Amino acid sequence: MKTQEELTEIVRDHFSDMGEIATLYVQVYESSLESLVGGVIFEDGRHYTFVYENEDLVYE
């Protein structure tokens, strides 16, 4: 089982391919040991929310 830090790094690596990240945040109250819920804001102003669970990243 991966730690929350490892899950965060996986998500950061994925989004870094889309541009320069200004902020990546995790909603700790919605996340667990198996899933990571949060959002990412890019330097150009784009903002996505995401759920990473079971090695699957869903964002909008």
Rank of each mutant, 00 (worst) to 15 (best):
Thr3Glu: 05
Gly38Lys: 00
Asp56Leu: 14
Leu7Asn: 03
Gly45Val: 01
Thr3Ile: 04
Val40Gly: 00
Leu57Val: 09
Leu7Trp: 04
Glu20Lys: 15
Tyr25Gly: 02
Tyr25Arg: 03
Thr8Leu: 13
Asp17Asn: 13
Ala22Asp: 09
Thr3Lys: 06
Asp56Arg: 11
Gly39Lys: 11
Met1Gln: 13
Thr3Ala: 04
Glu55Thr: 14
Ile21Gln: 02
Met1Asp: 09
Tyr25Trp: 09
Tyr48Val: 06
Tyr29Ile: 05
Asp13Trp: 13
Glu30Ile: 11
Ile21Ala: 02
Val51Phe: 10
Phe15Met: 11
Leu7Tyr: 04
Leu36His: 01
Asp56Pro: 02
Thr23Leu: 13
Phe15Glu: 01
Gly39Trp: 05
Gly38Pro: 00
Glu55Gln: 13
Gln4Asp: 04
Leu24Met: 11
Val51Cys: 06
Thr23Ala: 12
His47Leu: 05
Glu9Tyr: 08
Asp13Tyr: 15
Val51Glu: 06
Ile10Trp: 14
Ile21Thr: 02
Ser16Asp: 08
Glu55Gly: 10
Asp44Trp: 02
Met18Trp: 14
Thr3Met: 04
Asn54Met: 09
Gln27Trp: 06
Leu33Ala: 14
Ser32Arg: 06
Thr49Gly: 04
Ile10Tyr: 07
Tyr59Met: 15
Gly45Leu: 04
Val51Trp: 06
Glu55Leu: 11
Gln4His: 05
Thr8Pro: 02
Ile10Gly: 04
Glu34Leu: 11
Leu36Asn: 01
His47Asp: 03
Ile21Met: 04
Ile21Tyr: 02
Gln27Gly: 13
Tyr52Phe: 13
Leu24Gln: 02
Ser32Tyr: 07
Gly38Ser: 00
Glu30Thr: 14
Glu5Pro: 04
Glu53Arg: 12
Glu53Met: 14
Phe50Ser: 00
Thr3Pro: 05
Asp56Tyr: 14
Gly39Asp: 05
Glu6Tyr: 09
Met1Ser: 13
Glu55Tyr: 10
Val26Glu: 02
Ile41Trp: 15
Leu36Arg: 00
Gly45Glu: 04
Tyr59Phe: 10
Thr3Trp: 05
Leu36Ile: 11
Met1His: 11
Val40Met: 02
Ser16Gln: 09
Thr3Val: 04
Glu20Tyr: 11
Val40Lys: 00
Thr49Val: 09
Glu9Arg: 13
Leu36Gln: 02
Arg46Leu: 05
Tyr29Pro: 06
Ser35Leu: 06
Met18Arg: 06
Val58Phe: 08
Ser32Gly: 10
Tyr52Leu: 09
Gln27His: 15
Glu30Arg: 03
Leu36Trp: 05
Asp13His: 15
Ser31Leu: 11
Thr23His: 08
Leu24Asn: 00
Glu9Asp: 11
Gln4Arg: 06
Glu34Ile: 07
Ser35Gly: 05
Gly19Lys: 01
Ile41Val: 06
Asn54Arg: 14
Gln4Leu: 12
Val58Glu: 08
Leu57His: 02
Glu34Arg: 08
Val28Lys: 14
Ala22Pro: 02
Glu6Met: 10
Arg46Ser: 12
Gln27Ala: 11
Ser16Leu: 14
Met1Ala: 14
Ile10Phe: 12
Asn54Cys: 05
Glu30Leu: 08
Arg46Ala: 07
Phe15Gly: 00
Val26Ala: 04
Ser31Glu: 12
Glu53Phe: 15
Ile10Glu: 08
Glu55Pro: 07
Met1Cys: 09
Leu33Lys: 14
His14Gln: 10
Ile41Ser: 05
His14Lys: 11
Met1Glu: 11
Val26Gly: 03
Val58Ala: 15
Leu7Gly: 02
Thr23Asn: 11
His47Glu: 15
Thr49Glu: 04
Leu33Asp: 12
Tyr48Leu: 10
Phe42Arg: 00
Gly45Trp: 03
Glu5His: 09
Val26Tyr: 04
Gln4Ser: 06
Glu30Ala: 08
Lys2Gln: 08
Ile41Ala: 04
Glu53Asp: 09
Asn54Pro: 05
Gly19Leu: 02
Leu33Val: 13
Tyr48Gln: 02
Met1Ile: 10
Tyr29Arg: 04
Phe42Gln: 00
Ser35Pro: 04
Glu34Trp: 08
Glu53Ile: 12
Ile41Pro: 00
Asn54Asp: 12
Tyr59Asp: 02
Leu7Thr: 03
Thr8Trp: 08
Ser31Phe: 13
Ile21Glu: 02
Lys2Arg: 11
Glu60Trp: 10
Ser32Val: 09
Gly19Cys: 03
Val28Asn: 13
Thr49Cys: 06
Ile41Glu: 05
Lys2Asp: 04
Glu6Trp: 07
Thr3Gln: 05
Val58Ile: 12
Asp17Ser: 15
Phe15Tyr: 03
Glu55His: 13
Ala22His: 12
Lys2Phe: 07
Asp44Ser: 05
Val26Asp: 02
Asn54Phe: 07
Leu7Ser: 02
Lys2Val: 07
Tyr48His: 03
Ala22Ser: 10
Thr23Val: 09
Val28Arg: 10
Val51Gln: 09
Gly39Phe: 06
Lys2Ser: 07
Ser31His: 15
Phe15Ala: 03
Phe50Glu: 00
Ser35Asp: 03
Glu53Ala: 14
Gln27Met: 12
Val26Ile: 15
Phe15Val: 03
Tyr29Leu: 07
Asp17Phe: 11
Thr23Tyr: 09
Val11Gln: 00
Ile21Lys: 01
Met18Gln: 08
Phe15Pro: 00
His47Cys: 05
Val51Lys: 15
Thr8Tyr: 08
Ser31Asp: 11
Lys2Ile: 06
Phe42Tyr: 11
Leu36Phe: 13
Phe15Ile: 03
Phe15Asp: 00
Val40Ser: 00
Glu53Ser: 14
Leu24Trp: 05
Glu30Lys: 04
Met1Gly: 12
Gly19Asn: 02
Glu6Pro: 02
Leu57Ile: 10
Gln4Tyr: 12
Glu20Pro: 15
Tyr25Ala: 03
Arg46Cys: 05
Met1Val: 08
Asp44Glu: 02
Leu24Glu: 01
Asn54Gly: 11
Tyr29His: 09
Val37Cys: 07
Val37His: 14
Val51Tyr: 09
Gly38Met: 01
Glu43Lys: 14
Glu9Thr: 14
Met18Asn: 03
Tyr29Phe: 13
Gly19Tyr: 03
Glu20Asp: 13
Thr23Gln: 12
Ser35Met: 08
Leu36Asp: 00
Thr49Ala: 08
Leu36Lys: 01
Val58Lys: 14
Leu36Pro: 02
Gly38Leu: 02
Asp17Gly: 14
Lys2Met: 09
Leu33His: 13
Ser31Pro: 15
Ile21Ser: 01
His47Thr: 10
Thr8Met: 13
Asp56Cys: 10
Asp17Tyr: 13
Glu30Cys: 08
Leu57Thr: 04
Gly19Met: 02
